[in-house]
Design a protein around this nucleic acid. Sequence first.
DNA 1: TTAATGACTGTAAGCGCTTACATACTGCAC
DNA 2: GTGCAGTATGTAAGCGCTTACAGTCATTAA
Lengths: 334, 334
Amino acid sequence: MNIYDVSKKAGVSIATVSRVLNGNSNVSDKTRSKVLSAIKELDYTPNIFARGLGLNTMKTIGIMCTDSSDTYLANAVYYAEQTLRSFGYDALLCCTGNDYDNKRKYLSLLLSKRVDGIILVGSQFVSSDPAIDNTYIIEAASEMPIILVNGYLDGENIYCVMCDDRSAVYSSTAKLIESGVKKPVYFYTSTSTSGMNKLQGFRDALSDAGMTPDKKQLHLCTKNISKAKDYLTALYNEAFYFDAVLASDDSLAVGAVKFAYEHSVKVPDELQIIGYNNSVLANCTEPELSSIDSKVEQLSTTAVSLLMQVLSGNSVPKLNTVTADLIKRKTTKF
Amino acid sequence: MNIYDVSKKAGVSIATVSRVLNGNSNVSDKTRSKVLSAIKELDYTPNIFARGLGLNTMKTIGIMCTDSSDTYLANAVYYAEQTLRSFGYDALLCCTGNDYDNKRKYLSLLLSKRVDGIILVGSQFVSSDPAIDNTYIIEAASEMPIILVNGYLDGENIYCVMCDDRSAVYSSTAKLIESGVKKPVYFYTSTSTSGMNKLQGFRDALSDAGMTPDKKQLHLCTKNISKAKDYLTALYNEAFYFDAVLASDDSLAVGAVKFAYEHSVKVPDELQIIGYNNSVLANCTEPELSSIDSKVEQLSTTAVSLLMQVLSGNSVPKLNTVTADLIKRKTTKF
DNA sequence: TTAATGACTGTAAGCGCTTACATACTGCAC
DNA sequence: GTGCAGTATGTAAGCGCTTACAGTCATTAA
């Protein structure tokens, strides 16, 4: 069953069938309807491979992330897929994990699949650590446009959509200080651009308030409820005073809430807590978690729109920013 | 840059290059290495479309789910993708939402993309409601194998991996009753096969204990923390007695925990709560939520393995079952 | 020596589509 | 009637690959 069969049935040439299939204008209404009814009768579907061969596109975008089961990334992937589909594109999902070599390998794999573009979701793809080489992304961008969602990298054919993490953390920290906080603890989970921006926001807020953070107030840690709880418990046991926790991911903030519960520390009176990403988790704890909304949906949809613009040859800004909001719930005084 | 360039560079025919590319045995080591080094020098990548045209496969599997941002489905999708990749297959993600027409539409869309098979993740694709027609799946299966993860449908070329939901809910309910529960409330979220199986488990446990559930003990409700909380609050306000909550999704169980907190109902002493899916949410509440582990990972990896078997022409059982476990935490007495 | 075998390599025919180009036809101004 | 523009359709050349089939060559058995 191919275009030839349809052409025979409709009594026209394959070129005409192809024209009808591709919405080309130069076909008379009579011919068009003959072809369409032949297509319907034969229940014909164009062979996508042959079409791809001719057009050299499959209308497919690769979505890469480290781990699509992570609450935040799952949302980002979801919104990206939905938006892509609304533009008539398919989404090829590729989860790399955090291993650097895997990221490289899978990126070139996607390249070889001739997707039309690639969306890298999550900050984990670009590291600000000078020991980590980001050139694999820059090289890949020479073959097709790459959009970084929540990551920043300068390069030809690379476009970024970022959340203004620094200022979100800055203002949240400033509000904490304003409400009387003296010793906030900050949990960060990655050394990506975005991760470093958040950390910088925290540092700046402290220094603008004339505070110098103790090393123990800054803790790098994996996204894991008990990791955060354990760290705070350790501080508590060694009588290290702290009166607020700010985390770059909600799961760590949940850990802080659990710590407070276990040690009967009153939230928010004795300990204020702010999470990041405003995920489902924020609604699960008691008291409910104040959290910075990093606008995943807006981030993802913007990324896809940008990509569509680039693919249709329009020029778009290389860096695009989305504003984060603090969603106040019950773990903050203000 | 194509296979012809490589063949010229290596001084062999394109057939030989193709043989090397496809790991065909009948190539001498000398020729093979000549070809390989030509490939490396030219940095050649085979054109996937042309290959697809010849082989009529893209080594791609469609993963369909209603909503990949849902915690449970996100995990299922993640494990499916990982397993597929380990078999050298790509994953085309397609989120349909709950709309029936969308499901139909997207399924036929995937069909036209000539994926090699389709994995339907989540129970929402098959309804046991006789008003809902499932034949679109059966028809699609005539074109390529379809695997249902956590759903059941009988049909040619359709394979199912299910969790023994009925017995998991049955035994959990029985344990609740054994521990003194008189009036458990059950929340269910869908009328899919899996959803009905769970409900049946609840009903059977009650009737085997000589109890007849009040209508109010069975509540159909969307996956939403406050929906569950509100319903329980309503029961509470009209003085409808209940001493346990069993939910077909953790989010609803979290709602129950929140209800208990707000009304100072002691958990588990006055109210025992069991969730389903053993998701991150179960670790967020205080007390932590006992939850039935529906073994997403096992479900997904089994589904993919089955599909791989089918694709390589082996015969596999049409219905495969995975055993669920109750993970005991702090919302149950036992 | 000859023929048969087996290992290796090349030739060329597709796969089903798109599209540049060629052709046919129509209507209209002159 | 002639010429021309414009519209509608057909022809055929790819796109880059796989693979059946046809060699070629060296080795071995008869």
